[in-house]
Structures are given as structure tokens and as C-alpha cells.
């Protein structure tokens, strides 16, 4: 998956988890740009990412779910692991 494809998929996850209806997501966005993205909804986000991308997120990786850049690279690295 390319970064663009992941960003596109993330958009639909975000609209489901955070009721996000803003413009396309960009790499520079962080949890501070999306009002509903806090420690509580982070849990929902993790579960939804697992379902959507068919990956498993470790507890220790929860901290990196705070901005789009880290999120994208997490999804990317995990998908490479599962496809190989």
C-alpha cells in the first residue's frame, strides 16, 4: 500500500471513529488538529485500525497513535509483516 492509499483508507476510519468530516488527511496532522482525537477515542481508533487493515496493534505502540505520520508508518510496517 502506498502512503496515499493508506491516507485514503484512514479517512474513512477517522470519519467512523471521530465523526470526522473535514478535508483529506495529511502527514503533518496530529491529534491536536482533530478535536475528538484524545486518549479515550484512541482506544476505539486502535480497535478499528486492527479491523480495517487486518493488523494487530501492540499496547506498547499505542503511544505512537498521536499523529498521521506515525500512524501511517505503523500500518505500513505491520502490513509488510503480515503479507510476507
Amino acid at each position: 500500500m502506498t502512503d496515499e492509499e493508506i491516507l485514503d483508507q484512514l479517512h474513512s476510519v477517522f470519519s467512523f471513529v471521530f465523526n470526522y468530516d473535514g478535508g483529506p488527511l495529511t502527514m503533518s496532522m496530529t491529534s491536536e488538529d482533530i478535536p475528538a482525537w484524545d486518549s479515550m477515542s484512541n482506544i476505539t481508533l486502535a480497535i478499528e485500525l486492527e479491523h480495517h487493515f487486518g493488523i494487530k496493534i501492540k499496547i506498547a505502540e499505542m503511544e505512537s497513535l498521536k499523529n498521521i505520520q506515525d500512524l501511517t508508518s505503523l500500518v505500513k510496517s505491520r502490513q509488510q509483516l503480515t503479507t510476507h
Binding site: 477515542s41 482506544i43 480497535i47
Partner: peptide, 26 residues
């Protein structure tokens, strides 16, 4: 948050999701 809240909340959310209960914000 890292070692107590997240594991607890995630396992509850996972069991909700496994029982096909909705977990979205709404």
C-alpha cells in the same frame, strides 16, 4: 495510561467488537 488504562480499555473494546457491538464514538 500505558500499562493499565490502555490494556484494560482495549480488552473491553475488543470484547465489544468481538460480540459485534458497535464501538464507534457515536
Amino acid at each position: 495510561t500505558l500499562y493499565l488504562f490502555n490494556p484494560l480499555a482495549i480488552s473491553i473494546a475488543r470484547s465489544h467488537a468481538a460480540r459485534k457491538l458497535p464501538i464507534s464514538r457515536s
